[in-house]
Design a protein around this nucleic acid. Structure first.
Length: 636
DNA sequence: ATGCCTTTGAAGCAA
DNA sequence: TTGCTTCAAAGGCAT
């Protein structure tokens, strides 16, 4: 289901993926049975394209060029605007409402990750940058560039070694219009420095200008049409910089995002290497602050010779500039032995799944919006938002994830997730989930007395009856969320009594549209029947800020509608300081349950924020404005 | 310094 | 086939 027709034909998406999307997607039941999933998604894509085009038309380039330098506004303001607009659209607005719609831009939502050493960038590095066709001019005179070009297996010849220059054609008023990076410090763009979500950022065609890139970038022209082609196959993900030999073999996982006019999306650099993360990455103004240690060590090369953001060497992060430089030098000397040793050290990370991709993109927004930094709380928010995403929004991420997996598989045919398992087993190993879960189960019994959380003690974790077994694959919509995610069934372990709610109201409340209006009607029984995890998803419009002072200026600024941010802040606050959190609304509608367990007022306040938001959307008044993450089209 | 938290999804392994 | 576990990102926090 989530698989859009990527054109590749091969469907590497796991069935689970499809299941997840199907179940988690909103308004599944609204979909006509006659329309196939592909056609549906194709329509979605088409509509998205149309909307993108519309946006592009609506905001002229002149407006874009009039716009002051992006950094003139704070990131928070922008993200807030974006979120507000998204809230208006009630669709997440991820791609439909870019912060700077209507003209090509490059967003670098989170430059602190994934491969930048912590602290290497200032907070301002999170600023979104926008520019047109940031181009790289590699000056071959530079030692590094020579090295990069000489070594075909360099982590990236395209990882442009400084000094180099950015050009922003048509952005004469842009403060960053043109500048030179320091010549003193070799600046190397490593693929790891590129935000992996670059492809997401450039989802819409609107992000691309039909204009032609400078001639020196048009290294590949279609002999038939004369139209410049992308320097690499349209299905090569910017995530995965390819060696020359690889180019042409691997389709671009984001090929469906490539502008159809045939313009090269990704500038190609000298030597035929394309920049792994064409625009976004290298455009970061903070790049000039990249310390030498950002130089990609050669040992991060995969055995295929393909540098990859997923390739991580344990000692890369904290390597000093000296060591990095020496690594460059050593790379010259390094031959079989060292290469092999480093290969052994190479850690190819798993490709990101849809949610991870979503998180990476949206984290910065949430951080700015909620002034949160704690990832745990942020992830909770993102988890809810993820469920609140519309089908098409999620489909994009699923599709991207699918293509990423596909490319990952192609780049690293022999790689297996098991490899990473083994790597951990050798050294440190995380605390076993089972142990943690057992501990958690005890905690829940003790601290989560509300109906959403006060589950009957899990007496038998190895209970054979699961949703999968009970409902079968044909009725996956009846499964509880964890079952859909191939997690431990919470319905069964709750027992028949506590999980008597109809399937439509169980965890799928948010994951999937209510099967019927009646299923939305809150009832004590339905509340108590809610599964633990799934109740975490919805937010409550009944939550009132009455007892909860607003901690964020931007929330005080205006008449806050039932703000998701508030809810999220509450959630985050609760997450951070559980004892101090008092989710009024969320707790209000759980009074029944609280009363069910005397002395639980304090304990309930200690409930985890996400859990405290359970059932909320079932209480949504149909006429009330609905915060973004609460919107379910079925309610509409 | 290391692991946990927290989310969802993908994948691997054991039964 | 099913259930469980681990890992992927992220950064503050606890130990």
């Amino acid at each position: 289901m989530p698989q859009l027709n990527g054109g590749g034909g091969d469907d590497l998406g796991a069935n689970d993926e499809m299941i997840s999307f199907k179940d988690e997607g909103e308004q599944e039941e609204k979909i006509s049975e006659n329309s196939s999933a592909e056609r549906d998604l194709a329509d979605v894509k088409s509509s998205l394209v149309n909307e993108s085009e519309t946006n592009q038309n609506s905001s002229s380039d002149s407006e874009a060029e009039r716009r002051p330098a992006p950094r003139s506004e704070t990131f928070r303001d922008k993200t807030r605007e974006s979120l507000e607009e998204a809230a208006k659209r009630q669709d997440g607005g991820l791609f439909k409402s870019p912060p700077y719609p209507g003209y090509p831009f490059i967003m670098i939502p989170d430059l602190t990750s994934p491969y930048l050493p912590n602290g290497s960038l200032s907070p301002t590095a999170r600023t979104y940058l926008q520019m047109k066709w940031p181009l790289l001019d590699v000056q071959p005179g530079s030692l590094q560039s020579r090295q990069a070009l000489k070594d075909a297996r360099s982590p990236s010849p395209a990882h442009i070694v400084g000094p180099f220059r950015w050009e922003f054609p048509g952005q004469s008023d842009l403060s960053l219009h043109q500048f030179h990076l320091s010549n003193k410090v070799p600046v190397v763009q490593h693929p790891h420095h590129v935000h992996p979500l670059t492809p997401l950022i450039t989802y819409s065609n609107e992000h691309f200008t039909p204009g032609n890139p400078p001639p020196h970038l048009q290294t590949d022209v279609d002999p038939k049409t004369g139209i410049p082609r992308p320097p690499h196959p349209p299905d090569i993900s910017p995530y995965y910089p390819l060696s020359p030999g690889t180019v042409g073999q691997i389709p671009h996982p984001l090929g469906w995002l490539v502008p159809q006019q045939g313009q090269p999306v990704y500038p190609i650099t000298t030597g035929g290497f394309r920049h792994p993360y064409p625009t976004a990455l290298t455009v970061n103004a903070s790049m000039s602050r990249f310390p030498p240690h950002m130089v990609p060590p050669h040992h991060s090369l995969h055995t295929t010779g393909i540098p990859h953001p997923a390739i991580v060497t344990p000692n890369v992060k904290q390597e000093s500039s000296h060591s990095d430089i020496s690594s460059l030098d050593s790379s010259k000397q390094s031959d079989g032995k060292k290469v092999e040793e480093k290969k052994k050290e190479v850690h190819i990370k798993k490709p990101l799944n849809a949610f991870m991709l979503y998180m990476k993109e949206m984290r910065a927004k949430v951080v700015a919006e909620c002034t949160l930094k704690e990832s745990a709380a942020i992830n909770q928010i993102l988890g809810r938002r993820w469920h609140a995403l519309s089908r098409e929004e999620q489909a994009k991420y699923y599709e991207l994830a699918r293509k990423e997996r596909q490319l990952h598989m192609q780049l690293y045919p022999g790689w297996s997730a098991r490899d990473n398992y083994a790597a951990n087993q050798q050294g440190k190993r995380k605390k076993r989930k089972r142990e943690k879960q057992q501990a958690e189960s005890n905690e829940r019994r003790e601290y989560f007395p509300n109906p959403c959380l006060s589950l009957p003690p899990i007496t038998d974790l190895s209970a054979p009856k699961k949703c999968r077994a009970r409902f079968g694959l044909d009725q996956q919509n009846n499964w509880c969320g964890p079952c859909r995610r191939k997690k431990k069934c919470i319905r069964y372990i709750q027992g028949e009594g506590s999980c008597a709610s109809p399937p439509s109201t169980d965890g799928s409340l948010l994951d999937s549209p209510p099967s019927s209006p009646s299923s939305v009607v809150p009832s004590p029984s339905s509340k108590e029947s809610k599964s633990q995890t799934e109740q975490m998803q919805p937010l409550s419009l009944t939550m009132k800020p009455a007892h909860q002072p607003l901690h964020h200026p931007h929330l005080l600024a205006g008449p806050p509608p039932p703000s998701l941010v508030q809810l999220e802040n509450s959630a985050a606050a609760a997450s951070k300081t559980p004892a101090a959190s008092s989710h009024n609304g969320a707790l209000e509608h759980r009074d029944v349950s609280s009363s069910r367990q005397p002395g639980s007022s304090v304990a309930s306040s200690m409930a985890r924020p996400s859990a405290s938001l359970c059932h909320s959307h079932s209480l949504l008044p149909s006429t009330a404005p609905q915060p973004l993450s609460l919107v379910t089209k079925s309610i509409e």
